[in-house]
Amino acid sequence: MSRTRNLLATTTLALGSSAMLVTAGVAHADPAPLPISSEQAPGLPAIQNLSPIIQQAAADPGGAVSLLMAAAQAFAANKDAPDDAKNMANAVNQFAADPVQPVAHLTGPAAAPGLPEQAPHIVPAGVVPGTESHLPPGIDPANAAGPAPEAEPLAAPAPAPEAAPAPEAAPAPAPAPDAPAPAAAPAPAPVPAGFAPDTPPTQDFMYPSIGNGCLADGGNSLATALAVAGPAKIPTPGPGPGQTAYVFTAVGTSAPAEVQKLPLNVTWVNLTTGKSGTATLKPNPGINPAGPTTMTAIVDTGSGSIMSTIFGQVTTVDKQCQFMPTIGSAVVP
């Protein structure tokens, strides 16, 4: 009987300890973030479908254009896809179908039979390709419109008629009133605060990324992604010619952790040249050091039409955040 009592007491103690452990675990567990639905982000289905295709195209850049067009067309034909997602797929298809040729590498169109070939496009020294209009080297701006037409010979003067008697002199006109001073030229438009006159244009990604449960209070974070074509001064140290800078900002988050536990990557493919690659975005001490977390990378993409996707995780001082992929298109001169 005493042995039975000891067994029952031991079992009761073990069950009580297990219940305490389970209760303690539930009491201190973080609430699971709510899933993101297509109603909250109607373009998300296209992003989730096309981001892996861009990564696949980067592994086979020779077939990148046809691969992207086929995937985008197939998705756009899906009757169940949201309209925003279809529009995004159509935008990808259009961008891939007609890659932009870099200005610095363009040559003139093929000449008609019997005419000499046109000279290649040469950019003068000191001119950034694709950013300003310019004359070919060696052309005097004074003659930019071409030589003046030769003057036609003057015709022989006709014989003068007989002079008529001069009419009486008319009275002198009254002095004209003082003419109003010409209006002053309009002042140049003011530069927005925080922007320099030479601020480079940025090229936003097609759709924001979403970090599920990334905020300190457990809420979701929207992240903006953009590309800056070089040469430019931002983000520091600035992309050079033929480079693309990527900037990813997780809105509403705290500062980035010193050590990123898992990477946030950008995979890109140059549809013009067939070049491709992958790079890891990292915290930039010169941009939002106290938050929101901002990650950057400068990549040697070369000039041309660049299709990119950013995906992965971000480590803030509060959270480890998984971000949905996003895709973007950019033109580098």
Score class of each variant (00 low, 15 high):
residue 324 M to H: 06
residue 254 S to I: 05
residue 295 M to Y: 05
residue 226 L to R: 10
residue 186 P to D: 09
residue 19 A to W: 08
residue 237 P to S: 06
residue 37 S to E: 12
residue 121 H to N: 11
residue 256 P to D: 06
residue 112 A to K: 04
residue 308 S to Q: 00
residue 297 A to D: 01
residue 153 P to D: 10
residue 32 A to E: 11
residue 303 S to Y: 03
residue 12 T to L: 10
residue 15 L to Y: 07
residue 175 P to W: 01
residue 220 N to H: 14
residue 137 P to M: 09
residue 132 E to C: 10
residue 16 G to K: 01
residue 294 T to G: 01
residue 147 P to M: 13
residue 95 F to M: 05
residue 308 S to N: 06
residue 114 G to Q: 09
residue 91 A to F: 08
residue 215 L to G: 00
residue 87 N to A: 11
residue 318 D to C: 05
residue 215 L to H: 00
residue 255 A to N: 07
residue 258 E to H: 09
residue 133 S to M: 15
residue 49 N to Y: 15
residue 308 S to Y: 00
residue 154 L to D: 13
residue 113 P to H: 04
residue 333 P to S: 11
residue 43 G to W: 04
residue 182 P to G: 12
residue 128 V to D: 04
residue 310 I to C: 02
residue 132 E to S: 15
residue 243 Q to L: 02
residue 24 A to E: 03
residue 221 S to L: 02
residue 135 L to D: 10
residue 268 W to Y: 13
residue 287 I to D: 04
residue 67 L to G: 06
residue 300 D to C: 02
residue 38 S to N: 14
residue 2 S to R: 15
residue 120 P to S: 10
residue 164 A to P: 12
residue 42 P to L: 06
residue 78 N to R: 13
residue 180 P to W: 07
residue 227 A to E: 02
residue 293 T to S: 11
residue 229 A to D: 00
residue 59 A to H: 06
residue 52 P to N: 07
residue 71 A to Y: 03
residue 81 A to P: 03
residue 149 P to M: 09
residue 289 P to V: 06
residue 6 N to F: 09
residue 194 G to K: 08
residue 323 F to A: 03
residue 255 A to H: 02
residue 134 H to C: 11
residue 10 T to R: 10
residue 138 G to H: 14
residue 185 A to I: 11
residue 51 S to D: 05
residue 198 D to H: 03
residue 307 M to V: 15
residue 286 G to T: 08
residue 322 Q to V: 13
residue 31 P to W: 05
residue 259 V to S: 14
residue 195 F to W: 07
residue 268 W to Q: 02
residue 2 S to A: 13
residue 145 A to N: 13
residue 198 D to F: 02
residue 289 P to M: 07
residue 166 A to T: 14
residue 208 P to T: 09
residue 199 T to A: 11
residue 212 N to T: 11
residue 202 T to F: 06
residue 317 V to D: 13
residue 9 A to I: 14
residue 255 A to Q: 10
residue 133 S to Y: 12
residue 171 P to T: 04
residue 96 A to G: 02
residue 47 I to R: 01
residue 31 P to G: 05
residue 221 S to K: 00
residue 328 G to T: 01
residue 110 A to T: 08
residue 137 P to L: 14
residue 300 D to G: 04
residue 325 P to H: 05
residue 148 A to T: 14
residue 35 P to K: 09
residue 133 S to E: 15
residue 296 T to E: 07
residue 75 F to H: 03
residue 151 A to F: 10
residue 169 A to T: 13
residue 205 F to S: 04
residue 262 L to I: 11
residue 99 P to R: 02
residue 298 I to F: 04
residue 138 G to W: 14
residue 8 L to E: 08
residue 53 I to Q: 02
residue 210 I to Q: 04
residue 311 F to A: 13
residue 25 G to S: 10
residue 311 F to N: 05
residue 170 A to V: 03
residue 212 N to D: 10
residue 201 P to W: 08
residue 319 K to I: 07
residue 333 P to D: 11
residue 300 D to N: 11
residue 126 G to D: 01
residue 330 A to Q: 02
residue 284 N to A: 10
residue 253 T to P: 05
residue 202 T to N: 09
residue 50 L to F: 10
residue 224 T to G: 12
residue 221 S to M: 05
residue 168 E to D: 15
residue 203 Q to N: 15
residue 319 K to L: 06
residue 143 N to M: 15
residue 46 A to L: 03
residue 99 P to K: 01
residue 124 P to A: 12
residue 28 H to N: 07
residue 52 P to F: 12
residue 38 S to W: 09
residue 87 N to K: 13
residue 112 A to I: 05
residue 228 V to Y: 00
